[in-house]
Design a protein around this nucleic acid. Structure first.
Ligand SMILES: [Zn+2]
Length: 640
DNA sequence: CGTGTTTGACCGGCGC
DNA sequence: GCGCCGGTCAAACACG
């Protein structure tokens, strides 16, 4: 892998420029399907069809991620792989003029290039074909031009001087010019489309790389700071947490998203008493992944469990799917009296905002679409995916385009992977897990919460103006990572319940970071966390890497420990000392540092979750399902 | 024929 | 209790 730092520096600026290019918009293919009619009369009146155009078509997202490729940067534009650009013909080239205008001045240069062969530095395989075709056309034109020395490319004014030239010649000249222009136009169109395709791919690749970068940075921190860890108070917790796991010290990873889910599993499962799991964990036999997984997700597949449809379904939801449904949480609580847990206790979600024309961002995982609906506040359909890399994997994600800026793709992850993740998937998994951890850190001591928060601010989005947002108002505790490079005005339009954390770009700038905001942020975070009472979290904040297995038994609910007093104290402390953040950062890194980059995901029970889509190519059809809510607008990019 | 998508139906929570 | 709504299911398809 290239060094992270280098990547970030090199890639950022150009991309941001590209991404905002107007041509990106509206470059999506039309949808073939037209059956998105809501049949349920009940909902008809309410359904709004903002756009009359056909829905965006997305082909299925078969995701077969490139296993070994660390940084899948696909400069090649293969239309086959990118259904979103099915054919050049169909695509409405919106911003074409931009490219054209740019090149207009350079026509001569282009011709020169043609002679030279490929002048285009960024050539892609499939574009070569086009280029060759265009080239031949142009060459023919050139040939003609050569025959009619006076006519072609030279300015018409010059030829006029000769009165002796026959009208035929002028006509021919005009024709030639016309043909030249047409050819040029075609060529420009093709190139424009090619650029668009490249843009989409590069964008997705960039997102992937960025994720990976973040992961690497975290890993580096981890490696450096192991020693320091011990100094912290949190050390104790960690020590406790560290348990022999097949000889390895395995931090409890709850990575994340799954914390709540894991907790739910413990509490709920009839067959598996929580005690059982806990006993196993300490035993040092890592939960064998498969076993644990099977137990936890016993219902991995819907039909497996008890037959009664209702029971089976509920079980599957509760355990296997852990989650996504806040609905179920209450039920769990009732059974176990997690009590206060209130309905608020829900699973953590991590939402990633990234600019991408692609239907999905490539995250290295394989996903299967299981539903699509129209969400209430967004004309763009929301697609539901579940991880298919392993039979019982409970990780799910929702993909939806931002209503305000459809170039932004919002991917929300929930749940833990119960299987090893390919390297490609690790970046996203670790990133989201870190975010989730931050979100849930409130269950831990207040100090930890602060540390985590700070850590997140430093590491999750080290480069650029990225922002992390924690949403208290959302039905689920949600951390939003905004990877859109350029500060998007939309970010500021978020619902009141959310607060944003502006990240200082480079970690070293931490001291310079807007400290003033931190107190509020942290305070809010802690406050939010306190609401999550009932959540059981892993105590260790250690590493983000998905490689570690989660040990449910070790979870403990600490949410109650967080109280307003601690929050206030923390915020006050931060506010008082600008350098405090730096100190916290150091402490955090030391704490978190346990994880080693070399961690390989264990199959054990729960690996981190957040992966994004794999193969990157998801095409999507935008169909909406269900109750009337599911109508899709064409105007939106396909959700998937 | 297996795998993945589409999409109407279904479920459960929530607000009125 | 009714209706809305998010989320999921699962039969019907589509595709290679
Ligand atoms: Zn998975």
């Amino acid at each position: 892998m290239a060094k992270a730092s280098g990547l970030s520096i090199d890639l950022d600026p150009p991309f941001s420029l590209f991404l905002h290019h107007p041509t990106v918009l509206n470059s999506f293919p039309e949808d073939k399907t037209d059956n998105n009619v809501v049949k349920n009369p009940k909902y008809r009146s309410k359904i709004v069809f903002p756009a009359t155009t056909p829905m965006d078509d997305v082909t299925s997202a078969k995701t077969s991620p490139p296993p070994t490729i660390q940084f899948p940067v696909y400069l090649n534009c293969s239309r086959d792989q990118h259904p979103s650009f099915p054919s050049d013909d169909k695509r409405s080239v919106v911003g074409e003029m931009d490219f054209f205008a740019e090149k207009d001045n350079k026509l001569v240069d282009d011709h020169d290039r043609i002679d030279d062969g490929d002048a285009n530095p960024i050539h892609t395989s499939d574009t070569d074909i086009k280029d060759s075709t265009d080239r031949t056309v142009l060459e023919m034109i050139n040939v003609n031009t050569g025959l009619n020395l006076l006519t072609t490319n030279t300015s018409s004014n010059q030829s006029i001087v000769d009165d002796g030239i026959s009208s035929n010649m002028e006509d021919k000249k005009a024709e030639n010019e016309l043909s030249v222009l047409q050819a040029e136009l075609r060529r420009m169109n093709a190139e424009n489309q090619r650029l668009k395709e490249m843009l989409s791919q590069v964008t997705s690749s960039y997102n992937t790389v960025q994720m990976r970068l973040l992961t690497l940075m975290q890993q580096q921190h981890d490696g450096k700071t192991e020693k320091a860890e011990e100094q912290d108070q949190t050390m104790e917790e960690k020590v406790e947490q560290k348990k022999p796991n097949g000889g390895l010290i395995v931090p409890r990873q709850f990575m994340d998203l799954g914390l709540a889910a894991a907790a739910a599993a413990d509490t709920d499962e009839p067959s598996l008493s929580s005690s059982e799991e806990r006993s196993q964990d300490p035993s040092g036999s890592p939960n064998n992944n498969t076993e644990v997984a099977s137990k936890e997700f016993g219902l991995r597949k819907r039909g497996n469990g008890e037959e009664g449809k209702g029971t089976a379904r509920e079980d599957s939801l509760d355990q296997g799917s852990q989650g996504w449904g806040a609905n179920k949480v209450p039920r769990l609580n009732s059974s176990k009296n997690v009590d206060q847990t209130e309905a608020t206790m829900r699973k953590a979600r991590v939402s990633v905002r990234a600019r991408s024309e692609a239907p999905m961002i490539t995250d290295g995982c394989q996903w299967r679409k299981y539903g699509q609906k129209m969400a209430k506040g967004n004309p763009c359909p929301r697609a539901y995916y579940r991880c298919t890399m392993a039979a019982g994997c409970a990780v799910r994600k929702q993909v939806q385009r931002c209503a305000e800026d459809r170039t932004i793709l919002i991917t929300t992850y929930e749940g833990n992977h119960n299987h090893p993740l390919p390297p490609a998937a690790m970046a996203m998994a670790s990133t989201t897990s870190s975010a989730a951890r931050m979100l849930l850190s409130g269950s831990m001591s207040s100090a930890d919460g602060l540390l985590n928060s700070n850590f997140l601010t430093r590491t999750i989005l080290p480069c650029s103006s990225s922002m992390a947002t924690i949403s208290a108002s959302a039905p689920f505790p949600t951390v939003t990572l905004d990877l859109t490079q350029t500060p998007n005005p939309l970010q500021f339009a978020k619902p009141p319940g959310q607060f944003q954390v502006p990240f200082p770009n480079p970690p070293q700038n931490l001291a310079n970071s807007p400290d003033a905001l931190l107190p509020q942020i942290f305070g809010q975070a802690l406050y939010n966390q306190s609401k999550f009472s009932g959540l059981q979290m892993s105590q260790d904040m250690e590493q983000p890497q998905s490689g570690h297995q989660l040990q449910h038994g070790q979870q403990k609910s600490l949410a109650d420990t967080v109280n307003a007093a601690t929050v206030n104290a923390a915020t006050a402390a931060i506010a008082a000392d600008p350098n405090f953040t730096a100190a916290l950062a150091a402490a955090i890194t030391s704490i978190i540092g346990n994880s080693h980059p070399n961690n390989v995901p264990n199959n054990n029970g729960n690996n981190l979750t957040s992966a994004t889509n794999s193969s990157g190519n998801v095409a999507t059809t935008s169909n909406s399902n269900s109750n009337g809510n599911n109508k899709i607008n064409n105007s939106c990019f396909a959700a998937n």
